[in-house]
Amino acid sequence: MNITLSEDQRDCLQELINVAMGQASDKLARYLETFVHLDVPYIELVGSDTLPLLFAQKYNGSSVSVVSQGFYGNDGIRGESLLVYRRDNAKEVASLLGYEPEEANENEQLADISSILTTTFLNGLAELISNQMSYSAPRLISSLNTSLDSHLEQLSFNWELALKVDISYQVTDYSFNCDMILLIPGEAIQNIQSVLDRILEEY
């Protein structure tokens, strides 16, 4: 399936994502009681089969943690969100949550913060397009000593297209980067396109 976004659609989606990200950062800052700075996320629509290569280059064999979470909205908008952390970042990310050290292990904290990032952002996005999302539980699909590419290769069988959103979060006292990848099946991309067209018509 070959789907490309028109320039208007891309601009529209980018703006919606920026606004949703801004709202998410504000909420996160209040919850984490720290200032969250968010760079403008860069979005890109890629064939899911190119993902393993893209990420192999980016992470260059360093061990990563990946948390996956499914999302389901009205109008056939659905997909799977992946948050990818460099392993050496994962500890700091986890410590943001404010659990006592012995209260929750690192994997649990990583699943938690990922779910918070994903659902806060996607809830905001859903609201902007008058939609509503449900989520599956976050799942840690990769941790120490497993390679990201092999996981992505498995995933690319299930998804044709991926909306890659590069997010970089910086938090006072810490800075951490993570990638958010929204894997979206072809027909859901078409559904998103009609939503974008509807919004573009309004203005």
Binding site: N18, V19, G22, Q23, S25, D26, A29, L38
Partner: peptide
């Protein structure tokens, strides 16, 4: 008119002479 709506950012633009701040959308 900004997507970055955190209180610190509002303070900063006000100190630079902006009249008002509108949260996107």
């Amino acid at each position: 008119v900004s997507a970055d709506i955190q209180p610190d950012m509002k303070k900063k633009v006000e100190s630079l002479g902006a009249l008002a701040f509108i949260n996107k959308p």
